[in-house]
Design a binder for these strands. Structure first.
Lengths: 141, 141
DNA sequence: TAGGGTAGGTCTCACATAGAGACTTTAGAG
DNA sequence: CTCTAAAGTCTCTATGTGAGACCTACCCTA
């Protein structure tokens, strides 16, 4: 278990009032969110973790994404250099997506997040049940 | 640098075709996304990492969130047991939010993601510039 | 005693984003 | 001669998000 304080300290430096008022200091949390902070990116990267996949393979693997968002998410990840796109000149042409080295470098930090989810999900689930069962005894205002 | 293969293997087991068709296997990636996969949660948790904060402090720290989304994000995080909410009976009442132990346990994995962003952001930025400069030489279809 | 400020929200409306599903092109299979 | 498949694009509709007015209760100042 590593120590989170350095990342937290960097982030809070960004958040100080003068940092916000003068110039947009480079915030690593915003950077992460900018790349993978949307609905599908993390799922996409994990799906490509084991091997390259073609468009419709990805669609079958993540059944609840629309083609529209699949296209858009892949394009954004390609733009950020996390995946690469290869067109094979078959008829009809087939397109393969795979993680770039940069995308692969994301797997380790992502894995630690997944491990967290795996270990803690039962706690989260329990908290939800507790919260949903007692909606009225805490008046909001 | 830890080894991501175990998390990847767990995830790909979830994604196999029979897993999807028969019953919804418990997928840790979906679990993560379910809790912190929205626009503001990660930012909120990082803002609460150093110390508890009150509603309007949070609003000042994250200036581009609306009150509406601030309320909703805090409620969702509270529901998941990641933060706790304390009302102090002052007049008018003040409300303090702070990370629960469960929320604090998220800081380590999140820090590894932030470290990644810090180290790799220049690569991502370079990839973006490259992509945006060559929009036409790769016909999509 | 009227007016203004503060705290933590809620409410409504307008706009931006996401999803569903039809449509496209080219070729091979039956 | 029709059907299917590939990798998308396009349009329409549904959902999510943001802006900002409003609320309640109290304190302070004039």
């Amino acid at each position: 278990m590593s120590d989170a304080s350095s990342a937290i300290e960097r982030f809070s430096r960004y958040q100080s009032d003068d940092a916000q008022s003068v110039e947009p200091v480079h915030c690593p949390v915003r950077d992460v969110l900018d790349c993978i902070g949307d609905k599908w990116s993390i799922l996409m990267i994990m799906t490509l973790a084991t091997r390259p996949r073609r468009f419709s393979e990805l669609h079958r693997a993540i059944r609840d994404i629309s083609k529209r968002m699949l296209t858009q998410t892949l394009r954004d990840l390609e733009r950020d250099g996390l995946i690469t796109r290869h067109v094979f000149p078959t008829k009809p042409p087939s397109v393969e997506y795979c993680l770039s080295p940069l995308g692969q470098s994301l797997l380790d930090p992502m894995a630690s997040l997944i491990d967290w989810a795996d270990r803690r999900y039962s706690d989260i689930h329990a908290a939800r049940v507790r919260f949903d069962r007692a909606p009225c005894d805490v008046p909001r205002q």
